[in-house]
């Protein structure tokens, strides 16, 4: 397998013309290495789904190119057969059963195997409801079916756009475990677009954050989240402690007994020494890293 699963090079996409022109994607470049879960984040309207549709050759970019496994994707259906995708909410033929929907999709791809359909239905927890027409399915059931449909062709690359939408907490947990299993046990690559930042933080190896059609931050999840750390300090008296440190660091109170200081682990001894020298009682110092949610909000606000 090529080391790089997805290469997106300077893509732009404009919809409409003149005053009604909308720039959905603007010079977006990213590279997704094979064999990892790659998170693709962005606020509503940032261009995530348009990018995914361009990767899948559903939309032609105004400019730029997409390569999958080292080959250009444009009108390359043989290459696209290595990709399974759930794009912008699962859809199905409402008058067919869940199983029949999968059969039709598998036949359309030329890889129909009844045994595989049954095992996928079991994998996504839909085996017992597969023979009902999908018009009666809940959003969560459709999502599960959509994930099974994405896996029909035994793809090397799985693109999942909000796969946990409509799932109950247990379903979300199952989905997260499934996504990790696809990568860790089956060696696939998963490109995951999600609004559930907690979920992305738990399962993604790398993330890209996009805003207004551009990548504004990209990198290893752990590295990004430890880029900016803070110390939580419990001390007495609190106002004096904050006043002692504020000339050197930014401090924010956290209730009546503690405060946050924008500082890293290596600065902790110096901080404790300063406080002790000023006669302040220090009860606890803890290092805190940002959550992905905080990081995301900060990055998108800076980007705006």
């Amino acid at each position: 397998m090529a080391a790089v699963a997805i290469e997106v090079q300077g893509i732009r996409k404009q919809f409409g013309t003149g005053k009604r022109q909308i720039k959905a994607v603007d010079d977006l470049t990213l590279t997704v290495a094979a064999g990892q879960v790659y998170g693709f984040l962005g606020p509503n309207g940032a261009g995530k789904t348009t990018t995914i549709r361009i990767i899948l050759d559903l939309i032609r970019p105004t400019q730029g190119a997409v390569r999958l496994f080292g080959q250009p994707v444009r009108q390359n259906n043989r290459l696209l057969r290595r990709v399974g995708a759930l794009v912008e909410g699962a859809t199905c033929y409402p008058y067919l059963t869940g199983r029949k929907n999968l059969e039709v999709l598998a036949r359309s791809g030329g890889y129909f195997e009844p045994g595989r359909i049954q095992s996928l239905l079991e994998l996504v927890g839909m085996a017992d409801r597969a023979d009902r027409p999908t018009r009666g399915y809940s959003t969560g059931m459709k999502q599960r079916l959509g994930v099974a449909a994405a896996l029909l062709g035994d793809p090397d690359l799985v693109i999942l756009d909000e796969p946990t939408n409509g799932l109950d907490p247990a379903g979300m947990q199952d989905m997260r475990a499934l996504i990790r299993r696809l990568v860790d046990e089956q060696g696939r690559t998963v490109f995951l677009s999600s609004h559930m930042l907690n979920e992305v933080e738990q399962i993604c190896d790398r993330v890209a954050i996009i805003n207004r059609g551009r990548v504004i931050r990209e990198g290893d999840v752990k590295a990004l989240l430890t880029e900016k750390t803070r110390l939580r300090i419990e001390a007495e008296p609190l106002p004096a402690a904050m006043a002692c440190l504020q000339p050197h660091w930014t401090a924010r109170a956290d209730g009546d007994a503690a405060f946050y200081l924008d500082a890293g682990r290596e600065q902790a001894p110096q901080i404790v020494q300063r406080l002790a020298a000023s006669g302040i009682q220090v009860y606890q110092v803890t290092l805190q890293r940002q959550t992905l949610e905080e990081f995301f909000l900060q990055a998108t606000q800076e980007g705006a």
Binding site: R53, L56, L58, N77, A85, T91, Y93, P94, L105, S108
Partner: peptide, 17 residues
């Protein structure tokens, strides 16, 4: 029109030319 009506082209097109 069924494929447009049920938004199914997105599921079908990556599978066949």
């Amino acid at each position: 029109a069924a494929e447009y009506q049920h938004s199914m082209w997105k599921n079908l097109l990556p599978r066949r030319p």
